[in-house]
Structure formats: C-alpha cells, structure tokens
Simulated scan of single mutants.
Amino acid sequence: MSITRQSSDAIAKRLAAIPREIIAKVQPAIRRSVEEVAADAAALAEASRSTGSLVESIEATGPNEATPAYASEGGQRTAHDLQGFVTAGNRDARHGHLVEFGTAPRIRRDGSTTGTMPATPFLLPAWRLNRTRVQRRINSAVNKAIREASQ
C-alpha cells in the first residue's frame, strides 16, 4: 500500500481524534516494543562487529522523544504520541546502512575496484521478529484503555 497525501491526512485526522487518556495508556506499550526491537537489532548486528561502535549506537526513541543527533534528521525529528523509532549510528558509527544493505564494487579513478561487503541485515530482521508481538501488545493496550475509558 502506498501512502498518498490524502491517506496520510486521513490517518492524521483519525489519530488526532483519539482521546489523550487512551494515548497515555498505550505509550508504555509502544516504548517497550521499540526497546525490544532495538535490543534485537543490537543482537543481530553482533554478526558484523569489528569495533562494536555500530552495536553500541543502536537506540530506541519512544513517543514524544527526539531522535539522536546522528540519526537521519537527528535531533530534528520527534516521534509522534503513538510512534517510536529505532536508529543506528553516532559520531563513531556512520556505516549502519552499509552493514544493513551491503556494498557493491566501485571503480576508483585509477581504474582499480574496491571490495564488496555482503549485506548483514539487522534492523529489518529485528522488526520482522517482533512485528506480531508488537501488534498484539499495542492492540491489547488499546483495547484495555478503551474498556477502562468506557466504564
């Protein structure tokens, strides 16, 4: 499914209609889920460890928190009330994308080629490992918050 401007606006409108007390009760489930995905990403990134800087740079950003300074749009992007991020990278580790997706040979100016690095995915597999559990946890938190709010 592609997200168009129209569908994005529709989602934003629906999210704005959610009562604050329900959002507050769902945020701990989101935070816990983001931390679990980050922990699994760090465990999966161990396979590519040379200095450990990449593994140590993996961070969880919970609802209403800003991304770390060296993440994409670092320090400028804040998670929504119902959103979390897992980021990899800091001043010493700017190569997470190269580890995740691998590298292809490049031709240097002198005609020689660089080596390749096979992909060692860690972020996407961490999400795939946790997706079902995250969805169940958040659905459960939403349903519980709605039940409590309706009593």
Rank of each mutant, 00 (worst) to 15 (best):
S2C: 06
T4Y: 07
S7H: 09
S7C: 10
S7L: 15
A10E: 10
A10V: 08
A10W: 06
I11E: 07
A12M: 13
A16G: 10
A17C: 01
P19N: 06
E21C: 06
I22G: 04
I22M: 12
I23E: 05
I23W: 00
I23V: 14
I23K: 15
P28G: 05
P28S: 05
A29P: 07
R32N: 12
R32D: 13
A42S: 11
A42D: 00
L44H: 04
L44Y: 08
A45N: 08
E46R: 13
S48Y: 05
S50V: 14
G52Q: 07
G52Y: 03
L54N: 01
V55G: 10
S57A: 02
I58Y: 00
A60V: 01
P63M: 04
E65W: 05
P68K: 03
Y70W: 12
S72T: 15
S72K: 14
E73I: 10
G75K: 01
A79G: 03
A79D: 09
H80N: 15
L82T: 02
F85Y: 12
F85T: 05
T87W: 03
A88P: 05
N90A: 04
N90I: 10
N90L: 07
D92M: 09
D92W: 03
R94K: 12
H95T: 01
H97Q: 11
L98Y: 08
V99K: 08
E100D: 00
G102P: 00
T103A: 04
A104H: 14
R108G: 02
R109G: 15
R109P: 12
D110K: 09
D110S: 01
T114R: 01
T116I: 06
M117W: 02
P118L: 11
F122W: 06
L123W: 04
L123D: 06
L124I: 15
P125G: 00
P125Y: 00
A126M: 02
W127Q: 10
R128T: 06
T132G: 11
T132K: 13
R133D: 07
Q135F: 15
Q135E: 15
N139D: 15
S140L: 12
S140P: 03
A141G: 03
N143H: 15
K144F: 13
I146G: 10
Q151P: 14
